[in-house]
Design a protein around this nucleic acid. Sequence first.
RNA 1: GCGGAGAUAGCCAAGCGGUCAACGGCGAAGGCCUCAAGAGCCUUUCUCACAGGAGUUCAAGGGUUCAAAUCCCUUUCUCCGCACCA
Length: 966
Amino acid sequence: MNIKYDPCVIENKWQKAWDDSGIFQPEIDLREKFFITVPYPYLNGNLHVGHTRTFTIGDVIARYKRMQGYNVLYPMGFHVTGTPIVGLAELIAKKDKQTMEVYHRFHSIPLNVLSGLDEPLKIVKYFSREAEADMRSIGYSIDWRRRFTTTDPPYKQFITWQFNLLRELGCVVKGSHPVRWCPNDDNPVEDHDILKGEDTTIIDYTLVKFKLEGCSIILPCATLRPETVFGVTNLWVNPEVIHVQIEVTYPDKTCEEWIVSRDAYEKLGFTDKRVSVIKEVSGVELIGKHVTNPINNTSVLILPASFVNPGNGSGIVMSVPAHAPYDYLALRDLYDSNLSQYGINEDLKSKIKFISLIKVPGFGKYPAVEAVEQLGVKNQQDLRAEEATKIVYRREFHNGELTDTTGKYAGTKVSKIKDILTYDLINSRIADIFYEFSSQPVICRCGTRCVVNIVKNQWFLNYSSPEWKEKVYRCLKMMDILPPELHVEFENKVDWLKDKACARRKGLGTNLPWDKQWLIESLGDSTIYMSYYIIAKFIADGITPEQLTEAFFNYVLLGKGSASTVSENTGITKETLESIRNDINYWYPVDMRSSGKDLIPNHLLFFLFHHTAIFQKDMWPRAIAINGFVSLEHKKMSKSKGPLLTMKKAVKEYGADITRFYILAASEHTQDADWRENDIETTKKQLVRFYRTAREIIALPTSTGDLNSIDRWLLSRLQHKVAETNDALQKLQTRRALQNSFYLILNDLKWYERRGGKKALPQLLHTWTRLLAPFTPHICEEIWSHLGEGFISQAPYPAPDSTLVDVDSEQAEEYLQKALEDVEEILRVTRITPQKIIIYTTPQWKKTIHKIAMELKLTETLEMKNVMSEAMKDYEVKKHGKEAPKYVQKIITELKNTTKETAKSKRAKPIIEKEILSDARGFLECELNCKIEIQSADKPNYDPQQKSRHAEPMRPAIYIMESVED
RNA sequence: GCGGAGAUAGCCAAGCGGUCAACGGCGAAGGCCUCAAGAGCCUUUCUCACAGGAGUUCAAGGGUUCAAAUCCCUUUCUCCGCACCA
């Protein structure tokens, strides 16, 4: 072995050896299979340390399972479908400053190469080559024969088949949905295209149609609480605002006349209705008129209110003073004002009767009134009005129930009513949906103010279907989710998932087979592609896209039809077809999908939905594992803005094994890992050290003779670490696995060497190297090449060997460590320079009592009198009859505070203290730099300070003689 | 707002009813080794203590228990997702 640890040399060597031997290119055999996948990367940049974490976890499990004897398949592909790559090409083509800067600096792309990446296909080609090189350079055990890109023509055939099938199965429906829209670009606005208002969401208001009395003109009111229509006492119109009377044409050609604000008119232009202005109407004109509440045909008055914002909703607001503090306040403010200018002369106080429609604990009939009074809100401008509103809305929503005022809806929970009522109102044509941003304005990068647009005739995957969801729940029930606490999260997300638009206009991808003007949305085409890895291997052997017919996929993936018929139709030989089908049967389903936590509410969900829709139960995924993100020195990474650390750069700087080790040990499961320069430097030192230790052990001459206690101790301790590591890996706890397989073993090794151990080193290394192989495969191969046969990647993974567990030696060492610690502590506290130290072993009578107490603890009869009566039968104890009760009392208190299990484990064979101390005398003298004498507390030769009294089982007494000159 | 995760010593982070003053790592201090540096090794790192001890801790407050960092309740704070974007 080379003296110096040179990661680069070792890693290149073994990567080549793996590649040449094809050991990561599995074929069907008699072994049990294990199919593990991670989400393929999206290629709008180089792979970074975030990918590194997810992919390395996948690789560790793949390697672990392989060493456990499974036939493991770990494949990889590339995702390029969608808009970001197209967008990136455009940005590069026009030499966008930030893009060039980020991709040059953070993605480490030479400027001359970068400027050439001005077309999507060039980007795909460049990054897929880089990504494969990166993943090879970090030593992933990937079967590269199965690699593909989502725009490959054969893959498109696969997607085409999938979507045709989904449509046949009734999973695809047509509909429309609201999106953020830039009228200038005439396009939906994505998050990164937004200049202002990124956090804005689209809210769906219910638009209730009040009819102006005496004509058919409609005054629509937008509300988030449609149930309150039962409590409307009046409408609010802003007298300052000029409204418009418009003609509204529905898709079914029916026409209505509405009066709304000008803003609302413009927004309506982007809905599924056609609108045109008839004339302007001032707010003042409307005030004082009456409208009919469509829900109960009551007549309500229109009143003036300056708070009505024409930019929000329809510009006309319904007033529910019983349940809306603002409405109550506005009304109260009007009580004393003169409204005769609007032709209103009646006394509002007596005319307008509040209508209660929600019953909620903690409030009486009119929650709004009560809240306003409790908080002492003065008027509409008072800031506490907002607080009152929040309190009322929240309580009503969560605990409220509708009263008899609402007729057939009485008794319904407020939290459930919105969907039901809106549906009913729309059906009877007295309401409509009106979309609005949650906050204004939303500005596109081009500077234009965005609107909500309804994209019409869009294709949807109907994830909201209860039957489909039911299948997914069933699938989840059978699955392992790691960490298990996320199981609930998955179920919640399934519940929450609604229909999802699955077609888009822009980007790379596969056309919707039955409506070619649409492209299949990029998450929809990444749901069952794990099965395609199995087919991909055969496609590489020369099958053309034209041969990949629907019948082909139906046969190989679903087992429908027969090989001979498909062979006739496609020209693919029957044997090939059968062997593809066999491969599918063998490898599928996916045994584990390991992924970052960001993919839970989208990709992983769709992964489950599509599998349950397309495949039979036995092909449904078996497990999902989730991991967290990686940050850089506490800062969030960003592909497009930086900071970013690429996999390439990390491997180049530190080497594959160090990078792998570091990222795996940095954190567990869903917790985020923070990449720190300083920490990875120490990881480097650790591996250098491991290498050196291994080299030294290998160079050791073969030792003979029996193992000593300390050797047995080392090997015994090793078994616990092996067991822990295996357990951690089963649960995908890479951090815990490394803590045990590396740091804790290293610490044992330090103690072992300090104690002068040597004989067990080769055996330790033999196990240790294999234990670490999944994490740091290259360095382990290198060491293994001096230890064992073949590749360590194929060597058996260590399992705990119970025959090597040696409780006695572990207890002996614990005893010794404790004794040493005690001496050191005394020395520290007293600051004595010792001349000689006498250690007194436990007297026989205490051992006897200890033993009796332990036994009684196990039978739950640990009482003073029981111990005493039993102990006093012993002659030695009797001799110490005076001291005995005190010791018994002490031991009882101690044991009361421990569990039975602990007591049991401590009860193991009583150790021979004298022997342990005598064996370790040389060691102790050396450590403490003075003479050590061992005496028994039964009859000490020399005990000037009566220290021997302190001796107890597992804890000797100590007397330190001070050096005279100090 | 909804849903999820979390708050542990200077920092990262384990523990999730008794073996806990609390694994492990980093950082810091002292010592050994060395011509020296680095590496390595040992010790210390909540407070107090010249005999192996004692005291106060695990976001805050309350509770259950013989026993709580660990279980229950309340409060405060942090992070993540909430979609048509991969």
